[in-house]
Design a binder for these strands. Structure first.
Length: 469
RNA sequence: GGUGGCGUACCCAAGUGGUCUAAGGGGACGGUCUGCAAAACCGUUAUUCAUGGGUUCAAAUCCCAUCGCCACCUCCA
């Protein structure tokens, strides 16, 4: 058995082989912290978390690096618009640094709520300015960079493999372009390595460089930081599918040009989008749903995690509240079936891994992280009423390590507001009516209670009540 | 306009040449239980995979056409 992943670089599903036995270097593109993450963004981090967990469970020691981009991400790839961070600050009338800190923290809290394991190492773009300047210098010295009006640019024509990763047909695109390139750019695809600060305006985030005062271009931080922490050849690099044509293409171009080494990264993996109605969720289109908004509507972050696990990471997932309702119902039903197993002394991991049920589960995970099928295996197990509880608990513990749904950690019962005197009267009245076998009256009282949000359940131990969730 | 992808039951969704008369979940319906319910349990719910052709001993899976939808080529996970 071995892990197989779909590699964007080769467009094939291949057995995973680490560069160094037993170890994996993993870089996942983190957020630009100019706004809250929406649940579409978060889907990608959930996919990466599944990958991370699968690698760990396969026995690899994973060094996982994730960036926080807090500077240099422009509102347009044409390198025209503003820096998103500065734009975010202007929008909210706050300091850029404040904005960065605030949204980075919010992001990390979202991940925590979703049970996404934190990376081995977080790194911030603004903490690595010298490394980025150094990288520009290397590219400059090697002749891959040139100065234009508003910054230092990467010359894609110097890197023949430029379009390969995204399978872009540059010839075709250039032929159709016919637009004058602004500001002295040599090629349409050239991107900024270093942007100069505007003459008339003082930025809060700017640094000196040999080419002029300014700030690093987006793309650069991921190259500089992954080079620093994972080296010029590492195992896996992830992100959303949207990163294939621009961000990752540019990262590869600048990194491989600088190091002269290819491939820089063996396996590239990309998560598909969460789509809303007929389109993707995006920060600009107004369809913007944060995790906290979902929680405020009464869902658990794990309901969303469960929803995402129900679809393969490489397939678009249609989001609707109806789907989320279904996920919530499914997760609750599953938890209900597993109730009490947390009290059981579970079979040790080594033993549980020998059971066929585990093998079936793990085969799904190994097959390019097929979470939907893995989840189906969890259900098969949960429904098995003949299995020894110790085995069952051991297996579920293992599976949950992989899925991160806290299956054996029941959510604390919500504090229920005690019955009001009026409600208590109704309850007592029904009990009396029931005892007198006046069922019509008993049912009427139950309906009355239900309309107040109280559900009754008659058990051999008497009537239990609960407030509607 | 160019490029890539998708279309599986009421809903979400797996499966990408034979084990598929298509996994799993949600929902619905029927049954057991109950005074009746709820919960639980049992069962039912696609001979069919957008449509029409074709290739093959064999197709949801490959090819072609048609229709519908989406993404990228502006920013985006």
């Amino acid at each position: 058995m071995s892990l197989k992943f779909f590699n964007t670089r080769t467009r094939e599903t291949e057995p995973f082989e680490p560069i160094e036995p037993g170890k994996v270097g993993l870089y996942t593109c983190g957020p630009t912290v100019y706004h809250f993450a929406h649940i579409g963004n978060l889907r990608t981090y959930l996919f990466e978390d599944l990958l991370r967990r699968a690698l760990s469970m396969a026995g690899y020691k994973v060094k996982h690096v994730m960036n926080i981009t807090d500077v240099g991400h422009l509102t347009s790839d044409a390198d025209e618009g503003e820096d998103k961070m500065e734009a975010g600050a202007a929008r909210e009338g706050r300091d850029v640094w404040e904005i960065a800190g605030f949204y980075a923290k919010a992001f990390q809290e979202d991940l925590k709520a979703l049970r996404v394991m934190p990376p081995t190492l977080w790194c911030k773009a603004t903490d690595h300015i010298p490394e980025q300047v150094e990288l520009v210098r290397t590219l400059w010295d090697k002749g891959f960079a040139y100065a234009a009006e508003d910054g230092v640019y990467y010359d894609v024509s110097r890197f023949p493999r430029y379009g390969d990763f995204a399978r872009k047909d540059l010839q075709g695109q250039e032929a159709g372009a016919r637009v004058a390139l602004p500001g002295g750019k040599r090629n349409r695809e050239d991107f900024a390595l270093w942007k100069f600060s505007p003459r008339d305006k003082r930025r809060l985030m700017e640094w000196d460089s040999p080419w002029g005062r300014g700030f690093p271009g987006w793309h650069l931080e991921c190259s500089a930081m992954s080079l620093k922490y994972l080296g010029d050849h590492f195992d896996i690099h992830c992100g959303g599918v949207d990163h294939i044509p621009v961000h990752h293409t540019n990262e590869i171009a600048q990194t491989e040009a600088a190091t002269g080494r290819s491939p820089w990264v063996n396996v590239w993996m990309h998560g598909e989008f969460l789509v809303v109605d007929k389109g993707k969720m995006s920060k600009s289109s107004g369809e913007f749903l944060t995790l906290s908004a979902v929680v405020e509507k009464g869902y658990s972050p794990l309901d969303y995690r469960y929803l995402c696990l129900g679809a393969h990471y490489r397939a678009p997932l249609a989001f609707r509240f109806e789907s989320l309702d279904q996920a919530r119902a499914g997760r609750r039903n599953l938890m209900e079936k597993l109730k009490g197993l947390d009290q059981v002394r579970a079979l040790p991991v080594a033993e549980a891994k020998k059971l066929p049920s585990w093998t079936r589960f793990w085969e799904c995970v190994e097959d390019d992280l097929n979470a939907p099928r893995a989840l189906a295996q969890v259900w098969e197990l949960a429904k098995d009423r003949d299995m020894d509880p110790a085995q069952k608990a051991g297996l579920l513990k293992l599976m949950d390590h992989c899925l991160g749904l806290d299956l054996l950690l029941p959510e604390p019962e919500k504090e229920q507001a005690p019955l009001s005197p009026a409600e208590q009267d109704l309850l007592d009245g029904r009990a009396a009516a029931k005892a007198a076998r006046d069922f019509a009256r008993a049912d009427a009282l139950r309906r009355e209670l239900e309309s107040r949000g109280i559900l009754l359940k008659d058990t051999p131990q008497g009537t239990q009540w609960s407030r509607k969730r």
